[in-house]
Nucleic acid binder design. Structure first.
Lengths: 400, 400
DNA sequence: TGACTTTAGTTCGAGACTCGTACTTAATAG
DNA sequence: CTATTAAGTACGAGTCTCGAACTAAAGTCA
């Protein structure tokens, strides 16, 4: 255990977002941190013009952050006229967050630092509460020092998570005693807020901050193996819905309306583009993992035209669903994870064609359809990034 | 003209949302105004506990608002122990906003006041730039005095409006010279920010603040006559999408995949549930206005079982689309406008049944399906309400 | 080489704001 | 008539941001 592990207090920090002058300082500190994330190492002047704050104010804030070891000065960049600026950069060695994923047959942990760099990332087979807490424990032991500050922990799960970001409403694929898991994580990281979040939402968040949708403030992430899920990012933030269940696109009625879905209904998108439907379309069978299965399909497609035809059919239904989601949500980028990332253009090219056909108007621009680059740790990474959200928004105080 | 009309300056007010202490004051003033909208007339103590501000702070803010004639004291409520509080209420006679709608065959204007009360609402046949500015002019002349402050003006149009909230990207049904219209409105209300917004988005906003979705922070509004459109409210704010085109649900591929749509494609939702499809399903023909047509259908349905059967079929496809939207967006309330509001349960009952069948899980709650109560001025009302958004969020300064 | 220019960053005082405490005010309860 | 209760205000302390003046550190040019 890490007896000296400090944590950003939750009850204190989240109490109010900004009403007193110290809340104002928090908000402005958050603005500076965001600017540093966005611009990279910057001088105080650059931060001042970018945030709109006065130079003097930025000076004070940067000094505080430096004292807290959240930022550090770098070597100056000479060559320009006038006094050279002294750039400061976010430091990655003090403030970290932990992102976890508990899935059906694997668990992952990602340690992310304030600079946005990934400190460590591990995955392991298994899907129990114990597997997860073991992984979390070793990630903390190895990569979080006694003097470090853990700003938060978030757990990604393939489940319907309520809007409170803490409780699970429905998780048909998981057999977990949630109360036990909460206890285990709570004792592992005492005094740290442990949030729970849907895995597709987390992955969407990761793609929009680190992955294929980086830079886009409106993105859609679609993942799929057996089931199909999505995460929606609007204006940089996740769309959660009233109960927290937004993005459950697998069972929307799109595609072949006669296809029988595992849920017992007909016409679900999943029944047209889920892994099983894809395998049926190419007349192949499942291997031990979804990843390996998809790779085998991709390999056969290189030589077998009938496999390519099957993927073409699946791709068209993929495009049909993306078209529905795009007309509703108007994202700039759509990122495809799960087995779609492995098959790539074999599926996405027909999807793009269908998408073009179904655009509402000439004025609309087709969203870019990209494959995920983050791999299996996407959800854990997004979970970690979510824990930094309140810090960067200035809702929580790093200092003191 | 109203030479003395004062306006909340736009360049000044929107410059920064909160960085100096005066921005802090604006934000806290906004919090007090929101509390007054939400709670109704309240004492300073009640406002203090609800906003989390100190009693002293609330006292100062209320005094400023009173000086600006934004609030007024009401008679005290006796009967309780202790010194009776002196409730203050939002005043409706000084700060107003103007909401306009320019549609294919009618124009509307709504004057809304700070208290959230509708000062005036007018509609008129016609669809030209001149029709609109005439209506706007007379609404201002009759209901906005020389000493009043117009906080903003927003124009709702059946068009794709860009995310800048000012320019129109595509408006196939309107023949309007947008530059002329902008000039006309600009000279009508000088120094006032004139925003442009999609009509369905405006109506959705209106429903969530004044109509059938009041109180719900996650709502979906679906309207339809010939075309079908939607507006999405998440966490009290409109979802706009990357380009500003979110909510264009008419041409998503849902329902009868063989139905031919006016856009030339097959399978659009509009082709299954648009007014023309509905009329075909009940074997009736169009009258002079959509409203009258829908009323005629409702009347025939009372006696004619085959009409009811036709509406039943349409209703199922309505439910199918709502199910798609609900699984993606998870709203608490779905409000149906357009001809659906006239036909009511004749369409909504089968829609509810379909919706129940297509819910993802037992954990999910079916969103409430309600009919719009706002009528033809919904969009203009929402437009007016949108102009108050920045005021209530504290992004703009009412005083000084 | 040395004055000049240019840009970065800090110091300092003024001004704005919120907050807690103590105080005043206005009602009811007994 | 006194005690109690609660609302609202006055006041001083503390925090914060900001602009202006100032200092610092480079390059430029004669």
């Amino acid at each position: 255990m890490r007896p000296h592990l400090r944590a950003v207090s939750d009850t204190e920090g989240l109490r109010r977002s900004a009403s007193g002058t110290e809340g104002l300082r928090r908000a402005n500190t958050g603005a500076v941190l965001r600017a540093l994330r966005e611009l990279g190492p910057s001088t105080r002047s650059e931060l001042a013009t970018h945030t709109g704050l006065a130079k003097a104010t930025v000076g004070v804030i940067v000094a505080d952050l430096e004292a807290a070891r959240a930022v550090a000065e770098e070597g100056s960049r000479p060559g320009v006229r006038g006094r050279p600026g002294r750039p400061v950069a976010l430091r990655g060695d003090r403030f970290v967050s932990l992102g976890l994923e508990l899935n059906v047959d694997y668990v992952s942990a990602v340690v992310l630092d304030l600079a946005g760099d990934i400190v460590s990332t591990t995955s392991r087979a298994g899907g129990t509460s114990d597997d997860l807490s073991d992984l979390a424990r070793s990630a903390l032991d190895e990569h979080v020092g006694a003097d470090d500050v853990l700003v938060g922990t978030t757990l990604a799960v393939p489940a319907l998570v309520r809007a409170d970001d803490r409780t699970v409403a429905w998780a048909p694929n998981l057999r977990v005693e949630w109360a036990d898991l909460a206890d285990a994580l709570g004792s592992l990281v005492p005094d740290v807020r442990v949030g729970v979040s849907n895995d597709a939402n987390c992955a969407a968040y990761a793609e929009s901050h680190h992955g294929a949708a980086r830079g886009a403030s409106h993105a859609l992430y679609v993942t799929g193996t057996v089931g199909i899920g999505a995460g929606i990012v609007q204006d940089g933030e996740l769309v959660r819905g009233g109960a927290g269940f937004a993005g459950e696109v697998g069972h929307m009625a799109v595609g072949d309306s006669t296809a029988l879905c595992g849920c017992g209904r007909r016409g679900c998108w999943e029944a047209s583009i889920g892994m099983k439907a894809m395998l049926a379309a190419v007349d192949m069978s499942e291997l031990d993992t979804p990843l390996r299965t998809a790779e085998a399909v991709a390999e056969r497609a290189a030589t077998d035209a009938s496999v390519r035809d099957g993927l073409e059919r699946v791709g068209r239904d993929v495009g049909l669903g993306i078209a529905v989601l795009s007309t509703v949500l108007d994202p700039e980028v759509v990122v495809m994870g799960g087995y779609f990332a492995v098959l790539g253009d074999l599926v996405l090219e027909p999807a793009r064609r269908t998408l073009d056909e179904r655009l509402v108007s000439a004025a609309q621009v087709r969203p870019e359809l990209r494959t995920s680059t983050l791999g299996i740790e996407a959800a854990a990474l997004g979970a970690a990034e979510q824990s930094f959200g309140p810090v960067l928004l200035g809702e929580v105080d790093l200092l003191a």
